[in-house]
Nucleic acid binder design. Structure first.
Lengths: 246, 246
DNA sequence: CGATCGGTTGAGAGAGATCAACGCAGGTGG
DNA sequence: CCACCTGCGTTGATCTCTCTCAACCGATCG
């Protein structure tokens, strides 16, 4: 089946997605991104700093403990944010999609790595230049702060999930959260693309790959999900919501 | 249960408490707080907004879903930040001590409640006034952003703990984290005050009260800790660190 | 065609949850 | 002063959900 909008941006023939060819003002992700907080003048200033980049799947945008020299705005594709422990255990902090901003580090060093799950397009901004820009643009700083606060809130939700929820609730909640996110980004398809592996999901939900696999299998067996290539289709969102437990 | 023994008692500005006698410039927690980012002039402007308040133990500073009308800077005591789920499960997001700033909400509504564990003193700032102040003071906004970013980073650490660590590692890591925190606040005693209950710790670490109690008992049995009134004394920080696993 | 990777499934084990009993301190009221 | 209650913590016995270990499948690739 030829699925509807394939990934997160239109992929139209005009190739006007992302920022590769058009200007920031025409950017498809502008309104859902931090850039949306800027005036046209400010946008132009920001645009001068933009160094467009593309990444193939599996490429690393930045690594844990790397020196932070830039911030990024993703315009196409998906990335995985993860932390590795000395003993090999891994935690996937989350996934990053079109319109998401990333790269803010505490003390000029990243505490996580970002790896492309798909073909990725992003705007790169040199950190120093970006810093001086935020200094001159309170609205940009405000937008960044709002975004960070929002992420903190999401992190708190996730802590509750990790600390108090069963495997079933975690997977259901993950799927619904992803759906909601795609929806906010303009993708309303019932088919959930899952660019990440089962292992990624497991490391995100604090489970093992086997438990994730079994839970997906059970959901499919119980007609909550339908397996489709490169993702799943949600058949019974209401029942899934009940399972997720709020 | 949601019974609140003492609701935030009206603390008149004339009362001799809060950060009362001294000025912000002399405040003991200034240097470890957001106020540290301000110039003296800015500090004076902030100080005019300050409504000092005190809370007895068990009092609620603000409740989950309350309308956010103020932000706070804790100058004395400890509070617990928690979220309650419809089904009764609770998650303790963390604990707040002297020098900590709290009250930032996403959309003017809190997503958590804050309850005093001890006698608490805090500076209250009306949200509207505080907002207009941050608008005029980029340095304050920057300090807030830095703080939120730091909290996000802590939340990410905690996610890893909740998702991938054993009960023993969680408790050890909790104790060391608390010790480090006290230390940064100038408290170097080997005795760790534990103003929170075992249940609070359990809800913070994603464990049950029984598991927390058993783990404390094991640590005591193995001479890692010594029970003292209202806390513990760390006897073997090195071994505790090994148990915490980085 | 073997090798590798991602995913699935089964059997058994174990860490932590659950259920239950009990101890102790502080408060309250007779 | 004692009886009673409540909140907090500890400890024991048992259960169960998830992990661990292992085998296997299909797709992809050099």
């Amino acid at each position: 089946m030829a699925s509807t909008p394939d990934r997160l941006s239109g992929a139209g023939p005009s190739c006007a997605h992302g920022r590769q060819s058009g200007s920031c003002a025409e950017c498809t992700v502008r309104l859902i991104s931090v850039c949306g907080a800027l005036s046209l003048d400010e946008l132009t200033a920001l645009e001068r700093l933009n160094q467009p980049l593309v990444l193939p799947p599996r490429a690393t945008l930045f690594g844990q403990d790397d020196r932070a020299t830039a911030v990024y705005n993703v315009t196409k594709g998906a990335l995985r944010l993860s932390r590795l422990l000395p003993d090999g255990r891994r935690h996937v902090l989350g996934f990053v999609f079109s319109g998401d901003f990333l790269g803010l580090a505490l003390d000029d060093h990243f505490t996580m790595s970002a790896e492309a799950l798909t073909h990725v397009q992003a705007c790169r901004f040199d950190l120093k230049a970006f810093r001086s820009l935020t200094g001159a643009m309170p609205s940009l700083l405000g937008a960044l702060h709002a975004r960070t606060s929002h992420e903190l809130s999401l992190a708190q939700d996730h802590m509750l999930l990790l600390g108090r929820r069963t495997a079933e609730e975690r997977v259901a909640s993950f799927l619904l959260g992803l759906r909601e996110r795609y929806r906010r980004n303009g993708l309303t398809s019932a088919t959930l693309e899952l660019p990440m592996t089962r292992q990624d999901i497991a490391d995100h939900l604090g489970l093992t790959i086997e438990t994730v696999s079994r839970t997906f299998a059970r959901f499919t067996r119980e007609r909550l999900l339908l397996d489709v290539p490169s993702g799943v289709r949600v058949l019974a969102a209401d029942r899934l919501e009940r399972l997720a437990g709020c």
